[in-house]
Design a protein around this nucleic acid. Structure first.
Length: 294
DNA sequence: CTCCAGGGTTTGC
DNA sequence: GCAAACCATGGA
């Protein structure tokens, strides 16, 4: 099925932005996302094959110097049907929010925006985000991916598709209880008891994560921090990437470096108001792709 | 071999 | 209360 997205949307940046660890670029212009029991294959349809209006758009682009109206509109081929796209993935990619209109408050933010625009704040599954960001502490992004993959292989449901021989879903809380000892094979290091505590908490209190959707930002953070191994930073990541609390900005090592080098050691995120989390993600991606500057 | 990683908890003053 | 030490191990 073909869909059209009329906002900044960049699959490469989304996958490399450090908020999702299981999405993959399978081939040039073929991307795979997994969430709950859903698997999405998506690829961009080249601009010169989109519609009848293309020729006039090209004329506009040629004559008007980089300010063509449809610059952000693009079409994509997706593997799901219309119901699943509208009912699930549209919201997953946060497509009701206009990222074209994010206010830019200072020069460095503008610089990050230019590099990072196209990133979306995905609405991912809370349990997967909780476990993933507990694992993330003091680990590199490739190492996080490895641990999560080890977990999925051991505990998750196997889905066989045509494109992939075997693909494992992220396990449900109950699935972790089957053959629970194998959690120690997942390269978690000292985080093993933390992950175990989170699994136990969600199993003993099945509504624990759902309750978060009804809470204020502050209550949600305090709720998540009751889990051992979840501190302020991990709680902020879960709140941002699972509960879409875009006013919250997780402060990690890279953001701290930015605060030191560009903001005199004073966090600028309060002035970014209800889009602080999006700005934060733009800054994080900027830092990842410009490590030599820090 | 060495160094560091999208931090958090525990310990020592 | 607050800074410092400690944590386990994959990647590069």
């Amino acid at each position: 099925m073909k869909i059209t997205i009329d906002d900044y949307f960049d699959l490469d940046k989304i996958i490399e932005s450090g908020q999702t660890f299981r999405a993959r670029k399978l081939d040039e212009n073929l991307y795979r996302f997994i969430s709950l029991d859903k698997i999405l294959y998506i690829s961009k349809i080249p601009d010169n094959a989109t519609s009848d209006m293309v020729s006039s758009d090209i004329k506009d682009a040629d004559s008007s110097n980089n300010s063509c109206r449809n610059a952000t509109s693009a079409s994509y081929e997706v593997s799901c049907d219309s119901n699943e796209w509208e009912g699930y993935w549209h919201n997953y990619f946060d497509l009701d929010r206009s990222y074209k209109d994010i206010p830019i408050y200072d020069d460095f933010t503008g610089k990050c925006y230019e590099v990072s625009k196209g990133i979306r704040i995905l609405r991912q599954e809370p349990f997967e985000m909780l476990i993933s960001f507990i694992i993330s502490q003091r680990k590199s992004i490739p190492a996080i991916r490895t641990s999560i993959e080890e977990i999925c292989i051991r505990f998750g449901t196997c889905k066989c598709t045509k494109k992939d021989e075997k693909l494992y879903l992220f396990p449900t809380p109950e699935q972790f209880l089957i053959d629970n000892d194998r959690l120690s094979e997942c390269k978690l290091g000292y985080r093993l008891p933390y992950v175990q505590d989170a699994i136990n908490k969600v199993n003993n209190e099945p509504s624990f994560l759902d309750e978060g959707f009804k809470m204020s930002d502050e209550d949600l953070l305090n709720h998540l921090i009751t889990i051992k191994g979840v501190g302020v930073k991990v709680a902020n990541c879960v709140a941002l990437f699972a509960y879409n609390r875009v006013g919250l900005a997780p402060i990690d090592t890279w953001i701290n470096k930015i605060i030191d080098t560009h903001y005199n050691g004073l966090s600028p995120f309060k002035k970014y108001g209800d889009v602080a989390g999006i700005i934060q993600q733009y800054m994080f991606f900027y830092a990842l792709t410009h490590k030599d500057e820090f």
